[in-house]
Every structure is written in structure tokens, then in C-alpha cells.
Design a protein around this nucleic acid. Structure first.
Lengths: 145, 145
DNA sequence: TATATTTAAGACAAAGATGTCTTAATTAAC
DNA sequence: GTTAATTAAGACATCTTTGTCTTAAATATA
């Protein structure tokens, strides 16, 4: 798996929040009901996004979470990195420590090239792009059946 | 992490086996001693590679494992898929089931493109390429320190 | 054949990821 | 202020991955 389940859930929740037209808070209850996720588990994932300053949260009635800034200023790498750290974007394909141009593993050079393309995708893809109306037919955020 | 620790270990072990000049069996004791891996855990990983017909094994004195065919005919995808399944090469970035051109998630199109580049790298990279002499300076298979 | 060596296989332990539940803290609305 | 609603936080359970240990099976060699 490229991403952990936690990242899957966090990305889907972030997209749900981003596509909410009103700029108010969205309750986590609603998010998890609509996306069919565990409420408590997702709450903790969204707490991490809040701590990473990607979301704002508010307790009490009418509370919930919202994006901390315009969706065009939040990209997929920021979300993934807040949940599971930078390993995906920096790690050696063989899991070796200090793998670098100076001390490369056998796949270092070719992997670095492909990994950069992965990183580019995550960095240049923003929440805004993924929820814009022309993408309406691609807004599926839930499992089928 | 792109790959599991199990895949890391299996790839490193496979490269160690491939770079052995003699075509005889290499003992798993030697592999795990040289690569600083757990003997029993690695043994089971190599069993999976044997079951996937990537390796041959032999018990008893002078026994061990060897490549089941020339290293130019074993690529990285085969090894990874034998260890952790095809998810990396086929899965949805958001973890959704049945994500396809017909029922795409918001990142389906762009992820499919990048995922294909990852797949290409794993498929076109063979053990032979990674152990050929011109790569000698890139044969690091162990952690530093 | 007997022995030593090696992989095969399975039980089990430890660690980490995932998921559930309870209580505390905060806040809107009455 | 009281109440209800909501996130924050932590304890705990379950499942998966990773790692260890023991025993069985196979095989080369003497």
C-alpha cells in the first residue's frame, strides 16, 4: 500500500470538508456518517490535521472542523505528511538509512527519479483542484455496494 | 512507506543472492549475517519467494537458496508482489474499492499516471541490472554505522 | 547408516496500526 | 447559569506486522 489506512481516511475527510460550500464548521459526526468511517478514530486523525494547522476546530454546538485556509493552499503532501510523516517522500526503496547520492543503494538513482514524480503529484494537487465543479463526476469519496 | 519492511528485507536478500558469482546455493545464515537481518523471519520471506518460483531452495549441508532463473529474468515487481501482493501496482490512492475509469475517485486520473511510472520502474528493473559490475559503487545493501 | 547441517513449518511474543469506549473540556443557545 | 452538543484526550481492545523460538523434514558427507 502506498498510503496507510489512516492517510486514506484523512484525505477523504479533508476532501469532504473542502467540498462543503459553506465556510462554517462541519461536524465530524456528519463527516464520518457520510463517509462511513469510525467516528472516534477519524476524530483523532483530524486532530492531527488541526495540530498541523491544516484545519481549525471548534467545540460545542455548531462546532466541528473547517479548512484553516483556502483549499488551493492545501495540498495532498501536507495532509499525508501530517498523518504518517515524510517517509514516502524521502525514504530509500530498500529501507536503508542514509541512502543518498553519496551512499546510494542499488536502486537509489532510478527510485529518486520516480519518487520525485510521486512527490510532485502530491505537492501540486490541491484540495481546490479536486473539488472544483468540473471534477464533479469524480467526487466519489465512499466505497461502493 | 512505499514498501513494507518485509519487502525491504526480501529485496535486499534477493540482491545479495543475485550478486553471488557462483551459481550454487547460498545459505540463509550467511545472507542474514551479512545483511544483519533476523534469520527466522528472513527464512520465511525467502520461502515465499521460493513458493512464487523466484528462488530454488535445498535443505541439508551445502543447502540454501539460489535464483530460479537468470537474474535478468527476475524484476522488482515480482519480488514485491510475492511478498505483499499487487496493491501497490493496482490500488486506489484513497483506498476505495472498485476505483476505475468508470467509478473514479477524485485523484484517480492523475494517480493512475504516476502509479504507472512506479510500476514501470519495478517491472523494467531486473536483479541483473542492479548487480552488474558497472553498478559496483551502488551495491550497498546494509545500513551504515 | 549415522551425523551434522540446513530449510520448512508452526507456535508464540512484541510492537505497531486500527478501532472502540469513556470522561473531560469547550461552547452555543436557551 | 444550565443544558445540550461537540471536539479533546486517554484507556483499552483487536488485528496485522514483525520478530523469536522450537521441532520436523531433508540432504550431503563420512
Amino acid at each position: 500500500m502506498v498510503l496507510s489506512k489512516s492517510s486514506h481516511y484523512a484525505l477523504r475527510a479533508a476532501l469532504y470538508i473542502a467540498r462543503h460550500p459553506e465556510s462554517g464548521y462541519v461536524s465530524i459526526k456528519e463527516i464520518t456518517r457520510e463517509l462511513d468511517l469510525s467516528f472516534h478514530f477519524t476524530t483523532k486523525l483530524l486532530q492531527r490535521l488541526t495540530q498541523a494547522r491544516l484545519l481549525l476546530s471548534c467545540q460545542g454546538p455548531k462546532g466541528g472542523v473547517r479548512l484553516a485556509r483556502p483549499p488551493k493552499n492545501i495540498n495532498l503532501r501536507q495532509i499525508v505528511e501530517a498523518i504518517e510523516g515524510p517517509e514516502l517522500f524521502t525514504g530509500c526503496l530498500l529501507g536503508l538509512n542514509q541512502c543518498s547520492d553519496d551512499h546510494p543503494c542499488p536502486v537509489h538513482r532510478s527510485w529518486t527519479g520516480v519518487r520525485q514524480r510521486v512527490t510532485n503529484l502530491f505537492e501540486k494537487t490541491t484540495l481546490a483542484q479536486l473539488v472544483e465543479p468540473s471534477h464533479k463526476n469524480k467526487l466519489r469519496l465512499t466505497n461502493l455496494e
